[in-house]
């Protein structure tokens, strides 16, 4: 293989000719010579695939949410209205059903509670652990591997493990509670504890992720900042609080966005934990409500409307994030 630098030098000696060449290509040359077109065989097929399956499907879903599509058969696109959204907000008996359909406020509230508690605790645990792991400890790789291990598991598997941990008679959680004289407590089917139990299991699964993100953030801070703070005589805790943690803002934001989106996807976990579409009202989130309405009740259009609400929630979190990333030139 020829040395690329030699080639480059040769070409630079020929500078004028190359430039004239390039000039022709951009000014008078056919559209086929443009880089966007020449590289199209590479980016266009994947782009069409996501265009069809992601963006096409989102638009189709919005249209479906305006129909009365219910049960078997195919959707009727001739009469579109916002009825499903009215039902989603205030409830009532829709034209496509004889039964009263409840609004989504309960599921929406649970979604927000789960999202906020899960993300905040994950970040806090992750931050503390990242700081501890960052103390030039021995066996760092082993500790990191263990902390991130649950992340490699499926939601379905995690749910099975925690269903067992939470079991009234044989679960380790109740055995530990019994050892300190509490319980046994019904956890999984207890309306007061359900959502907390779900959040706890998800924190178990994903706090290691927050740790990895924070650890990368800590390692990116120049050593001099740690040293400068120490020379000033600041205590360790003060140093982290005043000097280090404020510099982790980027890490916090990116971990937060990813964790929130994970919590929106907690459907798999709830489906596995409750063995189906019915987690019960106190653990019902928008993700489970949507799938239940569509796939268990056959209320396809209503499910689509809930999906649009979920999509808007995700967009409200992600769009500002992508926009700031774009402005900083980090995309």
């Amino acid at each position: 293989m020829r040395n690329p630098l030699t080639i480059l030098r040769q070409r630079l000696e020929d500078h004028r000719e190359v430039r004239a060449d390039g000039g022709t290509a951009t000014e008078a040359g056919s559209i086929l010579d443009r880089d966007s077109v020449r590289s199209a065989p590479f980016w266009l097929p994947p782009f069409l695939l996501i265009g069809l399956f992601i963006y096409g499907a989102i638009i189709w879903n919005i249209v479906l949410s305006l129909t009365d599509f219910q049960g078997l058969g195919s959707p009727d696109y001739s009469a579109l209205d916002f009825e499903n959204y009215v039902i989603a907000f205030v409830g009532g008996t829709p034209s496509w059903s004889e039964l009263t359909v409840s609004p989504v406020w309960n599921a929406a509230w649970n979604t927000v509670v789960l999202m906020v508690s899960f993300s905040v605790v994950c970040l806090a645990v992750g931050l503390v652990m990242a700081i501890l792991v960052d103390q030039e400890i021995r066996f760092e790789n082993t500790f990191r591997t263990i902390y991130l291990l649950p992340m490699s598991l499926s939601f379905v598997v995690t749910a099975k493990f925690w269903l067992y941990m939470y079991n009234v008679e044989t679960g380790l959680v109740n055995i530990i509670l019994g050892a300190v004289g509490v319980g046994p407590i019904e956890i999984v089917q207890n309306p007061d504890l359900k959502l907390a139990a779900v959040a706890f299991a998800l924190i178990w699964q994903f706090s290691g992720y927050a740790m990895i993100v924070y650890l990368a953030g800590l390692r990116a801070i120049p050593t001099s900042h740690f040293e400068a703070a120490r020379v000033d005589g600041a205590s360790t805790i003060r140093m982290y609080w005043r000097v280090i943690i404020p510099q982790l803002r980027t890490a916090t934001v990116s971990a937060l966005v990813v964790l929130t989106v994970f919590s929106l996807k907690a459907f798999d976990f709830l489906f596995s934990m409750y063995g189906g579409y019915q987690p019960g009202p106190s653990a019902d989130i928008l993700a489970t409500r949507m799938v239940r309405e569509a796939y268990a009740n056959g209320n396809w259009a209503y499910g689509s409307a809930i999906a649009v609400l979920l999509f808007i929630m995700a967009l409200a979190i992600v769009a500002p994030y992508i926009y700031t990333q774009y402005q900083r030139g980090e995309l």
């Binding site: 992601i54 989102i58 799938v291 769009a319 774009y326």
Partner: peptide
């Protein structure tokens, strides 16, 4: 074009299931 790719990471799957 790339932004459309990145945004795709964060789409909740529910938003496309029925279609």
């Amino acid at each position: 074009i790339y932004i459309l790719f990145v945004a795709g990471i964060f789409i909740p799957y529910q938003a496309v299931l029925v279609p």
